[in-house]
């Protein structure tokens, strides 16, 4: 609670602006987190309108976030265009952003507009292509590095072969026990490992939440 005591002293008595920059967000965080939890546990009893408050507040926050992101993209690319040798990528990026904004403002974003055409015929295929390229890299990487160099890697290799074959239709046609073995690997050893990771992650999350709640963790305030 030390942080809240300091907040009162700094803001009301000393009027220390630099400290206020850190401590006011912490206080806001505490209030928001408290209300959030109270709403969760006492919904329908005391906080009927709070969900609307949060909904609107977060929408406004989201819009401000998008504005900051847009500013950041323009700023970053401006410096790249000005000083970087590989400025052509940045020029292309900024031009495309401007073009899409122009098309959206000019004719709207409904189906059949130039914006929609660009989205479906350029953006979607590009995104899908980038993701699809992974298959080629994985094949090359698997060939070069997926080797049974030790007992552990041999177990991993055998397990992965069974799982891979169990996921394809031919695996079942080759031997009807392949899907059974593949399913067992996924349901038992793999799932047990995942569960341990999930538990560990959640424990860490709870700890972090408590630290942020009490103002002990300030990395999100760039401290």
């Amino acid at each position: 609670m030390d942080v809240y005591k300091r907040l009162v002293v700094n803001t009301l008595i000393k009027k220390d602006n630099d400290k206020m920059k850190k401590e006011i967000p912490i206080l806001l965080g505490l209030i928001a987190a408290s209300l959030w939890y109270l709403e969760f546990f006492f919904a329908g009893m005391f906080f009927d309108n709070l969900k609307i408050f949060f909904s609107n507040g977060l929408k406004i926050g989201g819009v401000v976030g998008i504005m900051i992101a847009a500013y950041s993209v323009v700023r970053q690319n401006y410096y790249k265009i000005k000083y970087n040798n590989e400025r052509y990528y940045s020029i292309l990026r900024v031009s495309m952003i401007i073009l899409m904004i122009f098309l959206g403002v000019q004719r709207g974003t409904a189906a059949g507009t130039p914006f929609s055409s660009m989205f479906f015929n350029v953006y979607i295929p590009f995104q899908a292509t980038v993701f699809a390229l992974l298959a080629f890299y994985i094949a090359s990487a698997a060939y070069r590095s997926f080797k049974a160099k030790s007992l552990e890697s041999a177990v991993l290799l055998i397990a992965s072969v069974f799982v891979m074959l169990s996921k394809i239709t031919l695996g079942e046609a080759m031997w009807d026990k392949i899907p059974v073995i593949g399913e067992w690997i996924m349901d038992a050893p793999s799932s047990a490992g995942r569960r341990a990771i999930i538990f560990g992650g959640y424990l860490g999350m709870i700890t972090m939440m408590i630290r942020i709640f009490f103002g002990l963790e300030r990395s999100h305030l760039s401290e």
Partner: peptide
């Protein structure tokens, strides 16, 4: 697409097998 998936998996399986044979 499932047949594509099947055969691409088989190619990767084959590549891993060849890689391991060469290694051994």
């Amino acid at each position: 697409g499932l047949s594509s998936l099947t055969f691409s998996h088989l190619v990767i399986f084959g590549l891993v097998l060849i890689g391991n044979i060469v290694y051994f």
